[in-house]
């Protein structure tokens, strides 16, 4: 079934620990979550498997030209950019690094379109640099909710800080608080 919400989570160094905390005990939600985490390609499958053990949601590696489904978490594969076409289909493509990153959080977030009543939520977790800041500005512009991991819980506050400095972040939260906010904003799958 088509999701009522699209959640995009961007992370780099220190992100895996934060993601583990967010997904531990996360119930199946009525939305789709897409995760961009910088990591070596050879751990993509085990990373998915590891997160899948923590949540009731179905965690899978994102595949090109597949539709978003509610209750699913899509992990962006390494070394390809990811976009969502018309808020429905996953599109993977080769390209130069953006903000030193491929996949890039900005590239993904900027592909999301304004389409009420669908909710859009952008989350920036621990990581070095500024990937995701431009994407957050875009999501806010189209009426999305925006969250940055708070400084005390982030291994590296670079990416969350850059997002906060756009003045377009609604909440700065710990990973546990992000999990609760997601449940509240997206709702459980019926």
């Amino acid at each position: 079934m088509r999701p009522n919400s699209i959640v995009i989570i961007g992370a780099s160094g220190g992100g895996p620990r934060a993601l583990n905390m967010i997904f531990t005990g996360l119930p199946s939600l009525a939305g789709s979550i897409i995760v961009v985490q910088q990591m070596p390609k050879y751990i993509n499958a085990s990373f998915c498997e590891s997160l899948n053990q923590l949540t009731e949601m179905n965690v899978i590696e994102a595949a090109d030209e597949t539709p978003l489904n509610e209750g699913c978490v899509y992990i962006a594969p390494s070394e390809k950019h990811i976009q969502i076409t018309k808020n429905r289909m996953i599109h993977l493509f080769n390209g130069d690094k953006v903000n030193w990153a491929c996949p890039s959080v900005d590239v993904l977030m900027k592909s999301i379109e304004w389409e009420p009543p669908m909710r859009v939520i952008g989350i920036i977790l621990s990581g070095l640099g500024q990937d995701g800041a431009e994407g957050i500005k875009h999501l806010k512009k189209i009426g999305g909710f925006t969250i940055a991991q708070d400084e005390s819980s982030a291994a590296i506050y670079g990416m969350p800080k850059s997002a906060v400095e756009t003045n377009q972040i609604d909440w700065q939260l710990t990973p546990e608080q992000i999990r609760l906010r997601l449940i509240h904003l997206v709702g459980r799958r019926q």
Partner: peptide, 24 residues
């Protein structure tokens, strides 16, 4: 990375694929 440094040099961004975490 195990680091006592509060800030990391931006050069490490090049190795994001390798460096999964920073423990203080």
């Amino acid at each position: 990375l195990l680091t006592g440094q509060q800030t990391l040099e931006t050069q490490i961004q090049k190795y994001q694929d390798y460096v999964l975490d920073y423990i203080k």
